[in-house]
């Protein structure tokens, strides 16, 4: 299909794997962070807000460098995770981490907006009906946020799919190991005679992005119908 070669398929498969894990693992954290930012009252809230949004504003190469310093084999967090057998630098796991961090601010923003749109009076009503706070969250807050959570997840996934700067800085561009679709396109464009491969991957990128957008629109429409809006 599409006449993709083995290296190109490898990049597509790796990108999907990296983006999937980046999304799945950062989503719960995004829910907690959004909850804290939207409703929490604690010291250091603005600092947290800044830290979450920093990757959106910094040059990605800086984020990649900081990841290398912190999560590299000699970095403090890198050594910590090595105790559990998890390594990041120059591994696909590192690409997932880079994608997760770059997509995180987008995800938190979408989830936070959804949370702020939830009518607190419905949560109060659930409380007066005897529901514990955990039950209120699971049965009222979360379902009412669902369209925003889905939007945030798709945004995060798309961001991870497209991540370039931080990824190439942190995990380099090793074919079959850390070469994602964007870094593969970059490589193919550097080599004379590889424009065909680059073009095929560009088409795949466009199809995946459009697919994600259409999926998110359909999902949001279905959820809105279910919420009777």
């Amino acid at each position: 299909m599409l006449g993709l070669g083995e290296a190109e398929w490898g990049a597509v498969a790796l990108s999907l794997k990296v983006s999937f894990w980046a999304t799945v693992l950062s989503l719960p954290l995004a829910l907690i962070t959004a909850q804290a930012l939207a409703r929490g009252r604690f010291w250091g809230k603005s600092a947290l807000n800044l830290a979450v949004h920093l990757p959106l504003l910094m040059p990605p190469v800086v984020t990649g460098y900081l990841l290398l310093v912190l999560f590299g084999t000699q970095g403090p967090l890198g050594r910590f995770f090595a105790l559990f057998g998890v390594e990041f630098a120059f591994r696909w796991t590192g690409a997932a981490l880079a994608g997760a961090i770059m997509g995180f601010p987008l995800m938190v923003r979408a989830v936070r907006l959804a949370l702020e749109a939830v009518d607190g009076r419905l949560e109060d009503a659930a409380g007066t009906l005897g529901a514990s706070r955990a039950r209120v969250y699971l049965t009222i807050t979360l379902p009412l946020m669902a369209p925003g959570i889905a939007a945030g997840a798709i945004l995060g996934f798309a961001k991870a799919m497209g991540e370039f700067g931080a990824t190439i800085t942190f995990v380099s561009n090793i074919p079959g190991q850390t070469q994602t679709v964007p870094t593969a396109i970059y490589t193919f464009l550097q080599v004379p005679g590889q424009e065909g491969a680059a073009l095929r991957l560009i088409v795949v990128s466009i199809l995946l992005s459009a697919g994600a957008l259409i999926a998110s629109e359909l999902l949001a429409a279905r959820m809105r119908r279910r919420l009777g809006r």
Binding site: D124, G130, A131, L144
Partner: peptide, 29 residues
């Protein structure tokens, strides 16, 4: 907390849960 009071409230604006059917609203508590 409200959940432990056994005091039910009918609010001015009904406050039905929009994502649940009438039956599931009725059975919520």
């Amino acid at each position: 907390p409200p959940a432990k009071r056994r005091v039910a409230v009918v609010f001015q604006e009904a406050r039905l849960f929009p994502h649940l059917s009438v039956e599931r609203n009725l059975l919520y508590g």
